[in-house]
Design a protein around this nucleic acid. Structure first.
Length: 364
DNA sequence: CATCCGTGGTA
DNA sequence: TTACCAAGGAT
């Protein structure tokens, strides 16, 4: 885009933003920590989903120091249901880094920001521009979609090697008078007007600059490469009862649902019944022998890269003491205690199956 | 480079 | 029901 056109584009976009922007909680503060927390929660997560989590989180952890001194388990419990739990683990770790090395103060430059756990190129640019006015353009899903339409960029937005192209384009359009405001304006336009489906081109403040709109190709941008369909895995999990309590195991921190708690179980192999599979996994992962009391039902759940079809069984402890294989820890918990632990969505579905059983689950 | 990482909303 | 999408980061 020509320099004079770019200046006009910025003015139209920012004017629209100042009039139409949503009053979001993280826009009511200039506190870098609050901005940071919001950006972490907003990763791959819609605004309406984030808002209640953000309010609870900031009320409980208003500063870096308060977050740093908290237990990870409490942080994960507050994050429960929001997904991508490495975000919470990294945020907690970064807060401890800052509390120990920098008096709990967030650095104001992208290089230092990127050294912190969970801060990549997007959050570094977002915090630096929004909280500190630094001249860095952000590139997220909204920005790539807006720019692909605006400038007819044919590079697929879901290919890693297309990133430098979008970044260069975003940086060339950035409004240096207020980089943070401009970045938020592009993203707000993407969220409210230049949406993936059924964009509101009639209401778009920069339609006059949009090459896709001017040439009638909005619906064919952005370009995207197809992804293979995701597989379905058969799983089985077991509620092991002993003296009015049940057994839960803590998942290792590195992988899926790290730090969360689960009923013992695992993948059902081909040619194996889900009940036999469950007993096999229980023996391997806990060292316990159990007797089957019944089949409680089946739940479906979709993760990012696979779907789960999981059977839930109820067992009674027969013999043995707990000896963990891969898990970090274990607890025998009563109904009221169970919901104190961070539990995956699958287990909230499991708890629905438990309603009406002898073991009663309290609703959170 | 691509893949792994959660969940809810939407067409 | 399926598939895509949402203020990405770590590996």
């Amino acid at each position: 885009m020509e320099a004079t056109a770019a200046a006009a584009f910025r003015e139209c976009l920012v004017r629209w933003y100042l009039e139409h922007r949503r009053k979001l909680p993280w826009r009511q503060t200039v506190d870098p920590f609050g901005i940071w927390v919001s950006e972490v929660m907003l990763q791959q997560t819609q605004v309406d989903t984030v808002i209640p989590y953000y309010r609870r989180f900031m009320a409980r952890f208003p500063t870096v120091g308060r977050l740093a001194e908290a237990d990870l388990q409490e942080v994960l419990k507050l994050w429960e249901g929001l997904g991508y739990y490495a975000r919470a683990r990294n945020l907690h770790r970064a807060a401890r880094q800052l509390a120990a090395d920098n008096h709990g103060i967030l650095p104001d430059d992208v290089i230092a920001l990127r050294r912190l756990a969970g801060i990549g190129r997007y959050i570094a640019a977002a915090v630096a521009s929004i909280a500190f006015g630094r001249p860095h353009a952000v590139v997220d899903g909204n920005v790539k979609r807006v720019l692909a339409r605006l400038s007819l960029i044919n590079a697929p937005v879901n290919r890693a090697d297309a990133y430098p192209l979008f970044e260069k384009e975003a940086q060339s359009l950035l409004d240096l008078k207020d980089p943070g405001r401009f970045n938020q304006a592009v993203m707000e336009l993407g969220a409210l007007v230049c949406r993936p489906k059924r964009p509101h081109c009639d209401a778009c403040p920069v339609a006059a600059f949009c090459r896709a709109y001017l040439t009638g190709q909005v619906s064919t941008y952005p370009k995207r490469v197809c992804k293979p369909p995701i597989p379905t895995r058969a799983m089985a999990a077991g509620v092991i009862q002993r003296g009015g309590r049940v057994l839960i195991l803590q998942i290792p921190l590195e992988g899926l649902l790290g730090g969360f708690w689960e009923f013992p179980g695992g993948a059902v192999e081909a040619g194996e019944s889900s009940e036999a599979s469950c007993i096999r996994h229980i023996r391997k992962k806990t060292g316990l022998s159990v007797d089957t009391c019944g089949h409680l039902g089946r739940i479906r759940h979709a993760y990012t890269h696979f779907k789960v079809l999981a059977d839930l069984f109820i067992f009674r402890w027969r013999s043995g003491s707990v000896c963990l294989d891969d898990h970090l820890d274990h607890r025998w918990v009563g109904p009221e205690e169970l919901t104190q632990y961070p539990l995956p969505k699958t287990h909230h579905k499991f708890m629905s199956l438990l309603v009406g059983q002898d073991f009663r689950i309290q609703r959170p």
